[in-house]
Design a protein around this nucleic acid. Structure first.
Lengths: 366, 366
DNA sequence: AAGAATTTAGCAACAGCGTTGCGTAATAGG
DNA sequence: CCTATTACGCAACGCTGTTGCTAAATTCTT
């Protein structure tokens, strides 16, 4: 029982976040838009808008001219009122991006990491990278924090890297604490794929339904956005989608099982058969749809983007033909709108989401 | 943007539900228990307890004797203060149960349904069944409503049966409205497997983590409890877990794909090889764990319970050996505590959950 | 051109939530 | 019998969104 308790300050933050979500969803909005979208009374919306304006998060952008009656004031989000830095820590590279409140990427930089880098290596690279990426901008007080998206397994709740795959020196490293001390900023640690799906959700605002981000990049993973929040599972280990068996008699995978999606897919890639690789991935995606009934599937990852057309076509084809046809059962399949930056950008947006997103009432774990 | 708006009445209901969750989790509790469990102040807990006592939902059960200082009052849930009826609509049978606020099943009855029964058939059977099951008890005002767990596809939000598998006469039937009019009680409609997993969650109280209920009964389905709520997906179609491919070159399934978990499993059953059937199911379960990282797996369904020992052993074995071993990565595997009543009982508990459970702030669908 | 109708928007009073401060009741130990 | 300790609620408070109402700005009608 570690449910978040709800008091009036939660109320305020929640309703405020609802209005922010509208601002993120629509390029511009007026008071009545928010009223119908949220169900709040006009008076409540006025109060919220006043607070948000005072904080500089939104601003008025003229009035609506046509129509009878007193013209409505039009508002818009102020994208550059807040920023966050996102980091994508891969096996050999560190990618850093600067993201604004609207989810736009302002700056992107990749730097190499030494083979088998240590926590100290990473902390140093983070420090210099963050300094460099924020140098051009005058961000005094507008930098919300730093998000880190990383390969697992890790413990999101405690900010702990348990045992990053393929990296020695990374057993039970309290990376969040270390980075917070080293950078002097709030830090958010999560699995790469979970960060990635948060990017898509944040940029789509409050109307984003259940979704998965499928990432093919030296392995296959999946990040999930379910019920309006990232799904991490009981031990921050959700998303090992590449290690689901799709071929009972298939080749042995590094994980010890036979016929994992990842090994079957990779064999096809190694054989130069991209079309088959894409079809195999598509089978896995349809498996996900059957299990979770998703509204959105987003494709990402360097190895996938290299053959984006083939993958997109294969997945769309499978989603349309292998799931029972029905006009009410539609799933949107798309490539990530952020390309190679998804993970890093998503990590940044997790920081923004924690501060300005619609808060959940976190249930207890057991 | 159809997010639930949060006002002070939401606050009250939410915190009240938190206390109820404690009462459901523990056989008995005192004020300090609730304080530490919820994070509310002692004064707030006093107020909530006063309200709940006034409503008859909890009652004091003596005082704690030993210890220095004024003895603490001990409270307990009043199980028979509220009831709900649950219905499990299968292809040939209707199962009805009476469930109390604590999630205990008081009465269970199965009646046959005519082949290819119509909505009218079902409504009639529901009416007589509900009358019969509530006859013995004096439930004046304590009957919260009726929950219906049914095969899909259906539309939970609008209470619509879209196209129940294998049943003619069931295209776009507004069953919830019809049943509410016919029974004069609030009705809750959901997929059978989702109802089933709600049963497990409700009976475990607030401490129940991410879970799946695996049901093998003329088909294989999965119900999911994620992040403190039932996961239904974008179109109430989550849980078609039996139609995930586990054998790319496997036999053709009724759904049109090759090597679905269901067809591979059923072939093994038809061949009399229960051990293999169980192992196949176990592969599917481990796939789920890899994808969703669940804390609990609950096994249910008539066809599974017939060989419960074999299935339980196979799934436990696979969960312990096929998922990378780690002391922090533990998943509890168990048989449903309610046997053949899970679905019906879960449907009833969904009604209780809607009224007395911890409310979520439903995100919009798109 | 002037009044009516319509729409927007905020001030003021209000009910209800959890919180804080403090007094009171009930027990065990010295 | 007094003191320390623990349990617990009354009263006042700050804050939330809501309700009732008034003022402002525009178009439509006459």
């Amino acid at each position: 029982m570690t449910r978040t308790t709800a008091d009036v300050t939660f109320l305020r933050g929640y309703n405020q976040a609802l209005v922010m979500a509208v601002g993120r969803t629509l390029p511009t909005f007026e008071r009545s838009t928010v009223v119908t979208a949220t169900g709040l009374t006009p008076q409540a919306v006025s109060k919220v808008i006043a607070r948000l304006t005072a904080d500089g998060l939104i601003r008025s952008a003229g009035v609506r001219r046509p129509g009878i009656g007193k013209p409505a004031v039009i508002y818009e989000l102020v994208p550059d009122s807040r920023y966050a830095v996102g980091a994508h820590v891969a096996r050999r590279t560190l990618r850093l991006v600067l993201v604004d409140l609207a989810g736009a990427v302002h700056h992107s930089a990749v730097s190499p990491l030494p083979r088998d880098f240590t926590p100290d290596h990473l902390l140093h690279a983070l420090r210099t990278g963050v300094d460099a990426i924020t140098a051009g901008h005058e961000l005094r007080g507008r930098l919300t924090g730093v998000g880190i998206g990383m390969i697992g397994p890790l413990d999101h709740e405690n900010g702990l890297v348990r045992d990053a795959h393929g990296l020695r020196h990374w057993h039970d490293v309290p990376l969040r604490e270390l980075a917070e001390a080293h950078l002097g900023l709030p830090v958010h640690l999560d699995k790469d794929v979970t960060a990635g799906v948060t990017a898509e959700a944040w940029r789509h605002g409050g109307t984003f339904g259940d979704a998965a981000l499928i990432m093919v990049e030296s392995g296959i993973g999946g990040g999930f956005w379910l019920g309006g929040a990232a799904h991490r599972g009981a031990h921050t280990n959700a998303g090992e989608f590449g290690h689901t068996v799709v071929d009972l008699d298939g080749p042995r995978c590094v994980c010890g099982r036979n016929g994992c999606l990842e090994i079957v897919h990779n064999r096809a890639v190694e054989a130069g058969d991209v079309a088959r690789a894409a079809r195999v991935l598509a089978v896995g995606v349809v498996n996900l749809l059957q299990t979770l009934d998703l509204a959105h599937v987003v494709l990402a990852g360097a190895d996938l983007l290299r053959h984006r057309r083939a993958y997109l076509a294969a997945v769309r084809e499978a989603v349309h033909t292998e799931v029972p046809r029905a006009d009410w059962l539609v799933t949107d399949v798309a490539l990530s709108s952020l390309g190679a930056d998804v993970i890093a950008a998503g990590a940044a947006m997790q920081v923004l989401d924690r501060q300005y997103g619609v808060p959940g009432l976190a249930p207890g774990r057991s």
